[in-house]
């Protein structure tokens, strides 16, 4: 898996590159849009992380050009602008996801992994399983340690989201985006509330769903 990082800030580029390499990706770094275009022409990438504000050729134009010339390439935009319009503009320009600076690296990693999987993986199985938790997307049946569990719609959606990212931490923002379909942070504790209800039903002692401080939550694939 090869990822292109287009970012003009050397420090951010360095920590993103290092983190992605640690996670097992091959990483190339382009400090500006022109270099990025050249790299995209010569190399096949599985995903690109693109800063919106770049010197000379900006990120959105870069992605438009790359899209015009080439096949699908999952793109995640990075931007310091957090407003809803910027997000919409980025997504309309052909970005698949959008992350606001400052961000947690774990959240970036989770989003990149999700992008690559969406682009490469076979159609999703109707059954999601991690450890002794299993969820059927069609029959909407959930079992935990062999026993059936009755979940409310949002609890069900939350568990499905966690199962899709099993083993990788997901942030509250990602949960709000995918479970509540909120594209901005409504600044509430609703995620905590639904999370605690879900935990009460399948994970009373917090062994399966772990809170990662400063990041979010992670569903452990196996017990212990």
């Amino acid at each position: 898996m090869r990822v292109l990082v287009v970012e003009d800030d050397a420090k951010i580029a360095s920590f993103v590159t290092r983190g992605l390499k640690q996670a097992g990706y091959a990483v190339d770094h382009a400090p500006d849009g022109d270099t990025a275009l050249a790299l995209l022409d010569s190399t096949a990438y599985d995903a690109a992380i693109v800063d919106v504000m770049l010197p000379r050729l900006d990120g959105i134009s870069l992605v438009k050009r790359a899209r015009a010339a080439r096949r699908e390439l999952p793109v995640l935009f990075l931007s310091a602008k957090g407003s809803v319009e910027d997000r919409v503009r980025g997504l309309q320009a052909g970005g698949d996801d959008y992350l606001t600076k400052p961000f947690a690296f774990s959240e970036l990693l989770a989003r990149v992994q999700a992008l690559i999987r969406r682009a490469t993986a076979a159609p999703e199985a109707t059954r999601l399983t991690a450890g002794d938790v299993s969820l059927d997307l069609v029959s909407r049946a959930v079992t935990c340690a062999g026993a059936p569990v009755d979940l409310q719609p949002r609890e069900f959606a939350l568990l499905a989201f966690l199962l899709r990212h099993a083993g990788r931490p997901v942030s509250k923002t990602m949960i709000l985006e995918h479970v509540w379909d909120y594209s901005f942070d409504p600044q509430t504790n609703v995620v905590d509330v639904v999370m605690s209800r879900l935990r009460a039903k399948i994970d009373p002692d917090h062994r399966r769903i772990e809170t990662v401080r400063g990041v979010g939550y992670v569903l452990r694939p196996s017990k212990g």
Partner: peptide, 9 residues
């Protein structure tokens, strides 16, 4: 709708 669970709780 957003606060449904919070209210239920």
């Amino acid at each position: 709708d957003l606060y449904r669970e919070v209210a239920e709780e």
